[in-house]
C-alpha cells in the first residue's frame, strides 16, 4: 500500500494515458462495426465473407499484430497510433457479429409495418432498425470496452505508456504492489466505462430496461466470434 500512496500521481497520470489509449479505439470500433454489421445482415451473401474476415482478424495474436502493422501501414512501432489501430481492429472483429445479430433480431413485422407506413429506407434505418437493435449493440459495445481496456496494457512491452507500464516496471523492479495496482486500476477503468455505457444506454433507450434474453457472458460472446 505504501507504494500506492507515494505513487498516486504516477498512477493518475497513467490512468489518463490509458483512457486516451483505449477510448478512441472503442468509439472507432463501434462506428465502423455498425454499418458493417448492418451490411452483413442486410446482404446475406456478404455475411459469411464479412464474419470470416472478422474471425480471422480476431484469431491474430496481439503482439505479432502490433509488430506487423508498422511494416504494413507505416505507423511508427512505438506509438499510440499503432496501439489504437490494433485495438480498433480487434474491436471491429468482436463487434461486427454482434451488430449483425442485433439487426437480425429486430422484429420482422415491425420492420414490415414501418415500410408499409411509408418510411424511406434511411428513415427506417435511423428511426426503427437502429433503435431496436440498440440493446444488442450495447451488449456488444460492453464486451469491446472490457476487452479493449484490458488489452491496452500490452502497449507497455512495445514501449508505449499505459497502465501496463506498471506491470513491466513492477516486474523489473520487483514491486508486486505496483503490478497489483495496475491490475486493479485497469479493471476499475473497465468497470467504470462499462457502467457509463449502461447508463448511456438507459438514457438513450428508456424502453429497453429489461433484458430480453438470457445474459450472455463476455466469454460466450468471444466464443461466438470464433465461429459456430
Amino acid at each position: 500500500m505504501n507504494w500506492v500512496w507515494s505513487n498516486l500521481d504516477r498512477i493518475g497520470e497513467l490512468v489518463v494515458v490509458h483512457l486516451a489509449l483505449s477510448v478512441p479505439p472503442v468509439i472507432l470500433a463501434f462506428v465502423i462495426s455498425v454499418p458493417i454489421g448492418w451490411a452483413a445482415w442486410r446482404f446475406r451473401w456478404s455475411r459469411g465473407l464479412l464474419l470470416s474476415v472478422c474471425g480471422i482478424l480476431y484469431a491474430i495474436p496481439s503482439l505479432p499484430l502490433l509488430l506487423t502493422l508498422p511494416g504494413l501501414v507505416g505507423v511508427p512501432l512505438r506509438s499510440p497510433a499503432n496501439m489504437i489501430l490494433a485495438l480498433a481492429l480487434y474491436g471491429v472483429a468482436l463487434m461486427v457479429r454482434t451488430a449483425a445479430d442485433a439487426f437480425g433480431d429486430v422484429d420482422g413485422d415491425v420492420r414490415l409495418a414501418s415500410t408499409a407506413m411509408g418510411f424511406s429506407a434511411w428513415r427506417r434505418f435511423t428511426g426503427v432498425e437502429l433503435p431496436l437493435a440498440g440493446p444488442g449493440l450495447l451488449a456488444g459495445l460492453r464486451v469491446v470496452i472490457v476487452s479493449t481496456v484490458s488489452l491496452a496494457t500490452i502497449s507497455a512491452v512495445i514501449g508505449v505508456q499505459s497502465l501496463g507500464s506498471l506491470f513491466t516496471d513492477g516486474f523489473q523492479r520487483n514491486i508486486p504492489a505496483e503490478i497489483w495496482s495496475g491490475v486493479i486500476a485497469t479493471m476499475l477503468i473497465a468497470v467504470a466505462l462499462d457502467a457509463l455505457a449502461v447508463l448511456g444506454g438507459r438514457l438513450l433507450m428508456p424502453w429497453a430496461r429489461a433484458p430480453r434474453r438470457r445474459r450472455r457472458g463476455i466469454v460466450e460472446q468471444e466464443l461466438a466470434e470464433v465461429g459456430a
Binding site: 472490457v146 476487452s147 481496456v149 484490458s150 488489452l151 496494457t153 500490452i154 507497455a156 512491452v157 497502465l163 501496463g164 506491470f167 513491466t168 513492477g170 516486474f171 520487483n174 508486486p176 503490478i179 497489483w180 495496475g182 491490475v183 485497469t186 479493471m187 473497465a190 445474459r215 457472458g217 463476455i218 466469454v219 460466450e220 468471444e222
Partner: peptide, 24 residues
C-alpha cells in the same frame, strides 16, 4: 457464477497476471 467468474478472469490483463506470477 460461472459467467461472472469467467468474465472477471477474462477482464484480468494478461500481462499483469504473467508478471505477478513471475515475481511470485
Amino acid at each position: 457464477p460461472a459467467v461472472v467468474v469467467s468474465g472477471a478472469l477474462r477482464a484480468l490483463p494478461t500481462l499483469g497476471l504473467l508478471t505477478i506470477l513471475a515475481l511470485a
